[in-house]
């Protein structure tokens, strides 16, 4: 849960900032950068984990939950960047400029315009990232070295079991964690200003 929360948080921040830059700014080498951001999901993750493992050992992060959270960014960030790029594409530049003209500082603009309008993207991101993070067995085992236990690691030895009650228990756990994350995300989003009347909104 802790690893999942950290992965979601980093994905929101990095994915949001990268997505904003890709959607709203023009710069040299933008298309190359976009392709590079997608690269981690085009290369076999085991291959990346092997190389990352050596780096983690040098950095003393192997076998720690922070190390696992970092390695979980590899299969999740490309999706987050894509989701947030699309989210910012839909908002466009003009609404943000309009709020700036009306006196909004960058922080106010983020809280009153960007985050409320990015709600659908944030919901998708949270769900997708937590589900991907939960499902990582191989890279968690490599980087964690069996010292840090995640749901996938606990579940793995029971893969060949025919015990329906064990499977049901694991299924429930796997459903429960994304649900808790969703509730947490919704609670955070409900604290944003200007959430209006849900049933009348067409965004």
């Amino acid at each position: 849960m802790l690893i999942g929360s950290l992965v979601v948080l980093v994905n929101l921040i990095v994915g949001g900032m990268t997505g904003k830059a890709l959607a709203l700014y023009d710069f040299k080498g933008k298309s190359v950068l976009e392709t590079l951001f997608l690269a981690p999901i085009l290369i076999p993750i085991i291959l990346l984990a092997m190389g990352a493992h050596l780096a983690m050992i040098r950095l003393d992060l192997a076998g720690t939950w922070v190390g696992i959270a970092i390695i979980h960014l590899i299969p999740t960030l490309p999706y987050s960047i894509r989701i947030m790029t699309n989210g910012y594409h839909q908002i466009g530049r003009l609404w943000l400029e309009q709020s700036e003209i009306l006196g909004a500082s960058p922080v106010k603009k983020l809280l009153t315009i960007e985050l409320p309008l990015l709600k659908p993207a944030i919901r998708s991101l949270v769900f997708l990232v937590i589900v991907i993070s939960l499902s990582q067995y191989a890279i968690t085992a490599i980087i964690g070295g069996g010292e840090v236990l995640t749901l996938a690691l606990v579940f793995f030895p029971f893969l060949d079991t025919a015990d329906t009650s064990v499977l049901a228990a694991f299924s429930l756990w796997f459903a429960l964690v994304p649900l808790i994350m969703y509730i947490l995300a919704e609670t955070f989003l409900s604290y944003l200003p200007y959430h209006g009347k849900r049933w009348r909104k067409h965004i």
């Binding site: 609404w95 309009q98 709020s99 309008l117 200007y194 959430h195 209006g196 909104k201 067409h202 965004i203």
Partner: peptide, 8 residues
């Protein structure tokens, strides 16, 4: 364009 904030 009017650019009214749709969530307000």
């Amino acid at each position: 364009q009017p650019l009214l904030f749709p969530h307000m």
